[in-house]
Amino acid sequence: MYISKQSFRYESEPCIVSSGVVVGPTEAKGPLKDHFDKMYDDLWINEDSFEKAQKKLMEEACTETLTKANITPEDVAFLFGGDLINQITGTSFASRTLGIPFFGLFGACSTSMEALSLAAMVVEQGAPYVLAGTASHYAAIEKQFRYPIEYGSQRPPTAQRTVTAGGAALVAPTGSNIHVTKSTIGKVIDNGIKDPFNMGAAMAPAAVDTILTHFKDFQTSEEDYDLILTGDLGQVGRSIALEWFRQKGVTLPEGKFQDCGLMIYDDEPEAMAGASGTGCSAAVVFSKILHEMQQGKYKKILVCATGALLSPLTFQQKESIPCIAHAVVIERKGA
């Protein structure tokens, strides 16, 4: 049900029935390795290009998810997904393999929650099973947005590292005690940050805006949630977001405000300020966070995935970086 300008409440409380996450070698060495469904020790994921590797991550994240729910692609009504490669070919090519009716999305790194909220909406409209998934690949995305991976450029301490991961979740009317209950869709926010090596600072105000709008639309506050999780603000963006919340009159407890970008790597020197990429929030939320909800660690969480809507062209034309954030409430109901 539509609540206000930016928010929805899902009266039928669609369930996340299963989820799957497939990752590359660096992520497999990180602290979440026990939560992932499949790990590759080769950056090429046994393919002959990095773009194909990313496509395979998406495909396998979807098939892992379906296998766990014991259904086939034919049972799935729709797939919502997107990525960062030009014309989102990574996701549409994966959909070609899967053969599921496909809604292609572009919300940069916010796509995971954009897809999840749309999946919940469509399930509420009567669809039996809907997949939401995203993927990113370190080398494919560096090539697209920055430099060739063997090029020796020095990254500033604000830079983040794109994760190599695909993550998907299956949404259905019933079938589990993990429910998608609300969502708030973000506005495009641009506070004039131009540095493409400082995505955290560019995206932080979008996250703050969406979360504050969510509180206002549902007349709630951070006290209502066990965890408020942003997508890939990284160390820098998270600190800036906390301060920006304070200036807006909201003080979030540090422990409750976490970021997916800070959970994937522990001591990867290339990660600098943290992880990023369309696969980042999907890889964390659809593995560790859902597992911990099932175990009872969290009862109600707000996931706010953030995306920077720039391209190499807009950066070269000296435009600032517009950003967006979408928030979804995930709840565990009953025993």
Partner: peptide, 21 residues
Amino acid sequence: EKEAYQKVASRIEPKRPMLMN
């Protein structure tokens, strides 16, 4: 709003270690 934000952001973001570099 933008100017206020950029002030906050540039205060918090880590500076490049220029001397060491």
